[in-house]
């Protein structure tokens, strides 16, 4: 019955060949990432609309002060909110820490590609080395994010004195020293959702790293699993690039 299993030349989608020249697992990772991008797009739209509902700061950038009048809670300039750096208490260093976080994540993406490249050469030692660097980069980023969160939650020395005389420092889900409470909510939700992705990525990387170390992929004959978690890891980096622009720069 050879004729029934021979591949028809008329239609490559009839089975027997891989029209996309990629394995099932890799394709599914791509489509999962596509659907994940939809979720982040929805967050971006929410951010844009909520920001549009609030009044914008009208004055000069260099003379920026935080809103303290609840009848005119204008949106803060993000780089004025996130201007702290560890061990530099009270020094105004806008964007510097978040810039460092961006570099750390890009660098861990680079070590991930180097790991994938080593996998193509079946170089187990090199894959181990680069996967480990990627995991360290991921943990460093998470540590930075924890610092950023705790600083935002505890607030700056200046705090905020409302017009009714009450004083508040920091931010939570209902109060925000730096402006509208929804600014804090969006910060927690968007960076938190991204941080959860980074955390899952680190866990996946650790599992794959373990398999690399015990030689699972060497025996299997290919390192495609490293490629798959690599795709996920690059996506996490990609999302951060957008969070950086739309939450911190614009």
């Amino acid at each position: 019955m050879a004729s029934t299993i021979s591949v028809s030349n008329k239609n490559i989608w009839n089975g027997g060949v891989s029209p996309l020249k990629a394995s099932y697992g890799k394709l599914m990772m791509w489509f999962f990432l596509l659907s994940d991008a939809f979720t982040f797009s929805a967050l971006l739209i929410s951010y844009g609309m909520i920001r549009y509902m609030h009044p914008a700061y009208e004055g000069n950038y260099s003379e920026f002060t935080f809103a303290n009048d609840s009848s005119n809670l204008y949106w803060p300039i993000p780089e004025m909110v996130f201007d702290a750096f560890p061990f530099f208490h009270g020094v105004h260093l806008p964007l510097l820490f978040v810039g460092l976080m961006t570099f750390i994540l890009i660098l861990s993406s680079v070590t991930m590609v180097l790991g994938v490249e080593a996998g193509h050469r079946m170089d187990q030692k090199a894959v181990e080395k680069w996967m480990l660097w990627t995991i360290i980069g991921g943990f460093t980023f998470l540590g930075c994010q924890a610092w950023e969160w705790s600083h935002f939650i505890s607030g700056s020395d200046a705090g905020l004195t409302y017009v009714d005389g009450s004083f508040f420092q920091g931010a939570n889900l209902t109060q925000n020293q730096y402006g509208p409470p929804l600014f804090a909510d969006l910060f927690f939700f968007i960076t938190g959702f991204h941080g959860t992705h980074v955390f899952s990525g680190v866990i996946l990387n650790i599992i794959i790293f373990y398999n690399v170390v015990v030689g699972t992929y060497q025996r299997r004959g290919h390192y495609e699993m490293v490629e798959k978690v690599g795709l996920y890891w690059h996506f996490v980096d990609l999302v951060w690039v957008f969070v950086f622009t739309f939450f911190y720069l614009v």
Binding site: P19, L20, K21, A22, L27, W30, S109, V110, M112, V113, G230, L231, H234, F235, D237, L238, V241
Partner: peptide
């Protein structure tokens, strides 16, 4: 650059 080079999409099949 991230999607095309790091995620390798630029070098995949056109349909993908």
């Amino acid at each position: 650059y991230i999607v095309a080079e790091f995620m390798h999409l630029k070098h995949e099949v056109k349909t993908l």
